[in-house]
C-alpha cells in the first residue's frame, strides 16, 4: 500500500518534471505545444546513447540529457516556433502534430523501433525496506532529484528577476517590451529551459516509463492532463496535478487493471467540464 504510494509519488514527480516546460509554454504563453514529448524523447535517447554506446556514467549523462534538448528547443524556437505564437490554435495544433510525426519517424529511422533501456549504476538498482515499505533506490533518487528541481523552478519563477520578467512578458508582451524587457529573448530562454527539463525527465524516465519512438504520442495526453487539470496560473497547480495523476495511475493499474487508463481520462473530462480553468487555478472557474 505505502509502496504503491511511494511509486506513485515518484511517477508523479517525474511527470511534473517532464511537463513543467509545457506548463510554461502552454500555460503561461498560451501556445498549444503537442510536440513537447519529442524533447523528452530526445533527452531519453541522448542518455541511452551516451551511457550504453559511449560508456558514460549515468550521472554524467544527465546534464547532457538536459543540454541537448535545450539546444534543440532553442534552435527550433528561434527558427520555427516563433512564427506560430500568434497564430490561431488550429495552426499551432497542426504545426506541432507535424513536428511529432517527424520526430517519431526520424527516431524510428535512426534508433530503430524497439524499446530501449539504459544501464543503471549498481548503486541505484534494487530496493530496500524501511518499516515494511519497499523503497526502490532508483525511485528514491527520482523523488529527491525532481523535488529539488521543483523547488528550484518555483524559486526561479517567483523570486528571481528572470521570473518576474517572464511573468510580465506573458501578461502583456507589448508593455513589457516598452519597459525594456527583451520579450523574445525571455521566451527563447524559457522555451529552451522547458525543453531541457523535458529532456532530463525523459532521461530519468527511461527506466520507469520505457522509451521507444512512439514516446511523444503515448505520453502527450499525460502532459496535457498535468497542465490542463493543474491550471495555468501557477507552477504548484501542475505539480499537485502531476502527483495526483501519478498516484492515481499507479494505484489504478494495481487495484483495477481492468479499468486501466479509463479512470484517468474520465477524471480529466469531469474536471475540465466542472473547472475549465483547471483544478488549482486562483482565478474563479470560467
Amino acid at each position: 500500500m505505502l509502496t504503491i504510494l511511494f511509486d506513485g509519488i515518484a511517477y508523479g514527480m517525474l511527470l511534473f518534471v517532464l511537463a513543467s516546460g509545457l506548463a510554461v509554454t502552454l500555460g503561461l504563453m498560451n501556445f498549444i505545444n503537442l510536440a513537447h514529448g519529442a524533447f523528452a524523447m530526445a533527452g531519453g535517447y541522448a542518455a541511452v546513447v551516451l551511457v550504453n554506446k559511449l560508456g558514460w556514467p549515468f550521472f554524467a549523462a544527465l546534464p547532457l540529457a538536459f543540454v541537448i534538448p535545450a539546444l534543440a528547443g532553442l534552435l527550433l524556437e528561434r527558427t520555427l516556433y516563433r512564427h506560430v505564437y500568434t497564430r490561431p490554435h488550429l495552426d499551432q495544433v497542426l504545426f506541432t502534430i507535424g513536428l511529432v510525426f517527424m520526430s517519431v519517424a526520424a527516431t524510428d529511422w535512426v534508433m530503430g523501433s524497439q524499446q530501449v533501456f539504459v544501464q543503471l549504476p549498481r548503486a541505484l538498482e534494487g530496493r530496500f525496506e524501511v518499516g515494511g515499505v519497499g523503497i526502490g533506490r532508483y525511485r528514491l533518487m527520482i523523488i529527491v532529484l525532481c523535488g529539488l528541481l521543483t523547488i528550484a523552478l518555483q524559486f526561479a519563477l517567483a523570486r528571481t528577476r528572470f521570473g518576474s520578467r517572464l511573468r510580465a512578458a506573458v501578461d502583456d508582451p507589448r508593455t513589457a517590451q516598452g519597459l525594456g524587457i527583451p520579450v523574445n529573448a525571455v521566451f527563447s530562454v524559457t522555451f529552451a529551459v522547458g525543453s531541457g527539463l523535458a529532456g532530463l525527465g525523459g532521461a530519468l524516465g527511461v527506466e520507469v516509463l520505457g522509451l521507444d519512438p512512439h514516446f511523444p504520442l503515448k505520453f502527450m495526453i499525460y502532459f496535457l492532463i498535468v497542465v490542463a487539470v493543474g491550471g495555468t496560473s501557477s507552477i504548484t497547480g501542475p505539480f499537485l496535478a502531476a502527483i495526483v495523476l501519478g498516484i492515481g495511475d499507479v494505484a489504478g493499474k494495481y487495484y483495477m487493471p481492468k479499468l486501466g487508463a479509463f479512470a484517468i481520462y474520465t477524471i480529466m473530462i469531469v474536471v475540465l467540464i466542472l473547472r475549465p480553468q483547471g483544478l488549482f487555478s486562483r482565478a474563479p472557474g470560467r
Binding site: L26, I32, H89, L90, V93, I221, L224, I225, A228, K258, L259, G260, A261, F262, Y265, T266, M268, I269, L272, I273, P276
Partner: peptide, 25 residues
Amino acid sequence: LRGSDLTRLMVTLGVALMLREIANR
C-alpha cells in the same frame, strides 16, 4: 460547448482515448 480551444482539444481527445480503452478492455 464550454471552455477554450485547449479544453475542447483535451475533451475530444479524451473521449476518443476513453472509447479506445473501453474497446480494448
